[in-house]
């Protein structure tokens, strides 16, 4: 397996001199092609910060990140926009759909921005929405569908460009447990069917149990890492145990 993402000695501080706050300190890890990787940690650990930097939304204070061999920490603003459009797909906790666009328009937006032929776009939309079971909703507006459906629309938009990496920040955070389970199953399907590499931030052990591997961070540093070997149930138990070891801020009653 090749490494899709390489993170080296990442550091992020907030604030000015005299009032510096270190959100991330000396983080290094790699993600392999086709992995479904989770990032866990207590609230305020720096998960979102890490994800933002990985997805080029925020800049690190020092350290570097290579995605598909390209060093994204040295890219210029315009190049980064194009990079994000082509190589990254985003799923957010609060969906981040454009409420002025229909479901279909929301999903094909990244392709439209690339000025692709209409027939290609529509074919691709049909394909991804079939996978995610939202092909009946194309004409609706975001405020006309359920939140579970919204998150699947958001997932469809993330995968429509066949990105190298899909990043998801607490994608199940706003969902009820049934929709959350559905979404996780769909993500697993995307991961296996489309060979999409997925990076998911979560603080919820149940969601995390769908991943192949989990990185734990605490107070801005990489604390440990566990890999799924057996069943999902066993993996879930391992996650719970690790959370207990880390302690703080994470509830156990999520399942």
């Amino acid at each position: 397996m090749t490494n899709l993402v390489e993170v080296n000695h990442l550091k992020k501080t907030y604030g000015k001199k005299g009032n510096l706050y270190t959100a991330l300190e000396n983080i290094s890890f790699t993600i392999e092609q086709g992995e479904f990787i989770g990032i866990m940690g207590p609230s305020g650990a720096g998960k979102t910060t890490l994800l933002n930097i990985l997805s080029t939304i925020d800049k690190p204070t020092s350290g570097d990140i290579k995605i598909g061999g390209a060093d994204v920490t040295t890219m210029k603003d315009a190049a980064l926009s194009t990079f994000r459009r082509h190589e990254l797909g985003f799923i957010f906790q609060d969906f981040n759909l454009m409420d002025s666009l229909t479901v279909k328009e929301n999903i094909l937006l990244p392709l439209a921005l690339d000025k692709q032929p209409v027939s290609d776009m529509e074919g691709r939309v049909l394909y991804v929405t079939k996978i995610l079971g939202i092909d009946q909703l194309l004409k609706k507006y975001p405020n006309e569908i359920s939140i579970g459906q919204k998150q699947r629309v958001s997932a469809a938009r993330a995968m429509i460009t066949k990105p190298q990496l899909i990043v998801a920040d607490e994608p199940t955070g706003s969902l009820d447990s049934k929709s959350a389970t559905e979404l996780l199953q769909y993500l697993t399907e995307i991961n296996t069917k489309e060979q999409a590499t997925i990076l998911m931030v979560t603080h919820d052990a149940f969601s995390a149990s769908y991943c192949n591997r989990i990185l734990f961070i605490k107070d801005g540093v990489l604390f440990s890492e566990i890999r799924r070997t057996g069943t999902r149930k066993e993996f879930f138990q391992k996650i719970i145990d690790m959370q207990a070891t880390i302690g703080g801020g994470v509830s156990h009653d999520v399942i």
């Binding site: 926009s81 194009t82 985003f90 957010f92 981040n96 454009m98 921005l113």
Partner: peptide, 11 residues
């Protein structure tokens, strides 16, 4: 959102 999904400042 738009910026996150890859629309640049100029656009």
């Amino acid at each position: 959102i738009l910026k996150k999904i890859g629309v640049n400042r100029k656009e």
